[in-house]
């Protein structure tokens, strides 16, 4: 029977069996698959300065291939670097604006809070009484706040690249490429740190 299969398939151009096996091999050989989820699907860029803001910002934006942005703290952020203990994350950024009240509906995320690059997403309050604002870094819509941070704020440090993300943002698509190129690569960011 197998002989018959081979013979039949020979008539059709490619050899399917070989083809399929090879394609799996290609995939598995690809080193990408040994990366974790955030490494595999996100391009990480660093935001260190924003217009109108004097202090250094140490934030990271993960650009998913579908252009959704994942906001997190960069490696050199004082909280991560000095391993500070986070006592609370305050999402009520002004008298009237509470990021936790953000509600989106539909495919186009209607009703989302609009963000500028320097809009504040939250304040991280540490037990040593320091207080760090987290900026949007991205002009667009607020899609989701990571609500796990409310009960477990230290996830920010423990799993900064995965479960400790701060928010999901949807950038204005027309500015997407400019936005991405305005931020630093990992190499640039760490070079900066060493100087």
């Amino acid at each position: 029977m197998l002989l018959c299969t081979t013979k039949q398939l020979d008539l059709n151009k490619p050899l399917p069996q070989r083809n399929i096996l090879e394609s799996i091999a290609d995939k598995i050989n690809d080193k990408k698959i040994f990366l974790s989820v955030h490494e595999r699907y996100y391009e990480h860029k660093y935001c260190v300065a924003l217009p109108g803001i004097s202090q250094d910002i140490h934030q990271k934006v993960g650009f998913h291939t579908n252009r959704v942005c994942l906001l997190s703290l960069a490696e050199n952020h004082p909280i991560r670097k000095e391993d500070k203990n986070i006592s609370r994350i305050n999402f009520k950024v002004s008298e009237t604006l509470d990021r936790l009240q953000n509600k989106v509906s539909g495919k186009s995320k209607r009703g989302a809070q609009k963000l500028h690059k320097s809009s504040i997403i939250c304040y991280i309050e540490c037990s040593d009484d320091t207080n760090y604002p987290v900026y949007s870094c991205v002009e667009g819509k607020l899609v989701e706040i990571n609500d796990k941070l409310i009960t477990n704020p230290n996830l920010l440090k423990a799993k900064p690249d995965s479960d400790g993300y701060i928010a999901l943002l949807l950038p204005v698509l027309s500015m997407y490429e400019d936005l991405k190129s305005s931020m630093l690569t990992k190499e640039q960011y760490f070079c900066l740190g060493s100087i």
Partner: peptide, 9 residues
């Protein structure tokens, strides 16, 4: 997140 750009949250 993978499909968030084209599906409602």
């Amino acid at each position: 997140i993978r499909v968030l750009h084209r599906r409602p949250l």
